[in-house]
Design a protein around this nucleic acid. Structure first.
Lengths: 212, 212
DNA sequence: AAATTGAATTTTGTATTCAAAATAATCTCG
DNA sequence: CGAGATTATTTTGAATACAAAATTCAATTT
């Protein structure tokens, strides 16, 4: 049983977690009554939560048929990378032009634990996600932040399990950071686009290989 | 009374129209029972429609208080312009690289009626909207199209009544078209970004003037 | 045994009901 | 009179109820 001033909120979070953790498998039908009972709520708040997830493209609704956990294909993954490149590119540019030392420090701190010694891969992944999220959060454009969130742009890529090694990405992250520090927005954008593009290339290479 | 296989759909369209046409004024509270009765449905499909509009930022929800027609301020307008620049810029680049003659012809046709003789301003506005929408629709990235739509990026700017004259924008549109035709994606993107930026500048100038 | 039809069951979409919270209206007391 | 407390009304959020559509499953026919 969940307690909250609005039930749909914790239901939404729980469902999202169930989807991203693959407790609910892609393609699987979500039987409302069943999940509602499982979470100890009625269908009303569940439906609201499902609709939120539909907007985030984690769930697909077929009228009169039901709601399904969304499957993601290569085409969509590539689309997401392109959107990330566009939106994050703009964000890092805006962020850099703001020249706010507190923001820069926040970003700096994210990768500090990985500058020397062994890298805990789990912690590094979290830091990676945080870095990209921070760029979007701190850029000052709430509409962009919203679009980025509703496209669920980061979590879907992570869900797909596509991640490069820290050895490869850390220098890229630091290059972006450096460009931000010196206040060169255009360069920061360029480095970030390159960074995302490298991941995209890996994805494409991987999928071509798999298809053979 | 509305007929449809899913009531929330026509209710959504009707509500959206009511908001964009200012039948429901910005800031106004939406009393669910009242609107539901007015449209001849129960609160259930109305609520679903309202939630869709909340995601499109046309409606704002305050828990336990109610839903309100969203007010837009200058900051948000500028944010929207920046997002348009980023997303449409990417779209036109993708579109251009596809080098599809059918697509180019579709875009060409939009402004054909305005190349000679007097310009019907109402028709031109529609063509303008269609041009930008086509760029997004034809770029081939469904995720981008969705983000663009859910940001409700075009209709909100139109709602705000900010439009430049055809004399000013037609040459800009044609420059974009030309770059697409010659297959220069980077140039097309640059021209489109400039085009959107010009509108943004007008908006900022207008609002500064009004504040004095 | 495979395909097709038709009843039984499940599941969805919508309406209705109900309790809790918020707002409006009324009353009391300085 | 006017500010604050109290009651009444409205409105929301959630649960339940119900009809229509979709699915399942078994019976029948080929």
């Amino acid at each position: 049983m969940i307690e909250h001033s609005e039930l749909s909120q914790p239901v939404y979070l729980k469902l999202k977690d169930m989807i991203l953790s693959r407790e609910l498998m892609p393609g699987q039908k979500i039987i409302q009554e069943k999940i509602a009972k499982q979470l100890g709520v009625s269908r009303t708040p569940l439906l609201k939560a499902l609709q939120m997830l539909e907007y985030e493209m984690l769930v697909e609704s077929v009228p009169r048929r039901g709601m399904f956990v969304k499957l993601m294909d290569l085409r969509e993954m590539i689309e997401i990378f392109d959107c990330r490149e566009s939106l994050e590119g703009m964000a890092v540019n805006l962020l850099t032009e703001r020249k706010n030392p507190a923001f820069i420090q926040k970003l700096q701190k994210v990768f500090d634990p990985f500058l020397s010694g062994d890298i805990d891969i789990h912690k590094y992944r979290k830091a990676d996600a945080r870095f990209h999220q921070l760029i979007v959060d701190l850029c000052g454009n709430a509409t962009l932040k919203r679009l980025y969130f509703f496209g669920n742009i980061y979590s879907k890529v992570v869900q797909a399990g596509l991640v490069r090694t820290p050895e490869e990405t850390l220098p890229e992250h630091l290059k972006i950071l450096e460009a931000i520090k010196v206040g060169n927005g255009k360069l920061a954008e360029q480095e970030l686009r390159q960074h995302i593009n490298n991941s995209k290339k890996l994805l494409m290479a991987y999928s071509i290989e798999r298809d053979n």
